[in-house]
């Protein structure tokens, strides 16, 4: 089903989406309506235009494609499924994400991947094609963040990356030239590390184009928590 969203408020639009029984819904003319695909499960939602704040929040399963930019709080506390943003996303993407995968072709704003966490097989992943703003992965407790910096920006990360990180992994293509906090260590990703990332790169390239194998052969820096005590306190129990 297709919904033409121009002039619709977010309540009305989300009501229409929920009321629809189709498994595939296309929203056209979207401009800032909030909470699209919120808690959605088992369906594919395609958004043409600008997805408003909180797109894919609490998403359970299925696919959300945003053919445009996403505003703030993309995939907030997402549980599962896949989100593809063909443009860039605003601040606080993937906040407290607990499962599923988010792929952003362009840049991410401030505070992407703050306090993502994992448990058992639920390992959330956030892949950013461009660069990430400040406070990337703040208080990261689990899951995987990858910053590909495909535009080769001078700084792949903003300041204050990985502040308070005590779990999970952050991959950054190339080197890192912003100071990192004491609670983490950074090293060149080895073969084993890259095996973990390969599947996500493949999905990223399948969606947005590019050569995943070539990308995986490039040098990546891996940031992981350094302090065993805080790892144990916050993430290991």
């Amino acid at each position: 089903m297709e919904i033409y969203a121009k002039g619709m408020g977010y309540l009305q639009l989300n009501e229409a989406v929920r009321a629809c029984t189709d498994n595939r819904i296309s929203i056209r003319g979207c401009n800032g309506q909030r909470f699209i695909a919120c808690a959605s499960s088992g369906r594919q939602i395609d958004v043409h235009g600008v997805a408003g704040n909180g797109a894919g929040a609490y998403m359970e399963s299925g696919v959300l494609n945003v053919y445009g930019n996403a505003q703030d709080a993309l995939a907030d506390t997402m549980n599962g499924g896949e989100v593809y943003v063909f443009g860039s996303c605003g601040d606080a993407a993937a906040y407290a994400m607990r499962g599923g995968e988010v792929f952003v072709r362009g840049d991410a704003g401030y505070r992407a991947g703050v306090h993502m966490k994992e448990y058992g097989e639920h390992v959330p992943a956030l892949v950013i094609g461009g660069r990430a703003g400040c406070f990337l992965g703040e208080y990261l407790a689990g899951g995987i963040i990858a910053v590909l910096n495909l535009q080769n920006s001078a700084q792949a990360l903003g300041e204050e990356a990985a502040r308070g990180m005590h779990g999970g992994r952050i991959y950054v293509r190339g080197g890192i030239n912003v100071p990192l906090p004491d609670c983490v260590t950074a090293r060149t990703a080895d073969k084993e590390d890259m095996c973990v990332l390969a599947g996500y790169l493949k999905k990223f390239c399948a969606a947005f184009g590019g050569d995943a194998k070539k990308l995986a052969a490039e040098e990546f820096t891996l940031i992981t928590p350094a302090n065993k005590a805080s790892k144990r306190l916050y993430a290991g129990n």
Binding site: N31, G32, G49, V50, G52, N53, N69, Q71, D72, G90, D91, G109, Y110, G133, C134
Partner: peptide, 27 residues
């Protein structure tokens, strides 16, 4: 300085737009 509120800037030809959300510019 911590950017605790959202703000985006857009440019089209000789006009500069500033807004809390992108949708306000695209509108």
């Amino acid at each position: 300085r911590l950017k605790l509120r959202s703000m985006v800037v857009g440019e089209y030809k000789n006009t500069t737009y500033i807004a809390s959300e992108e949708c306000a510019i695209r509108a």
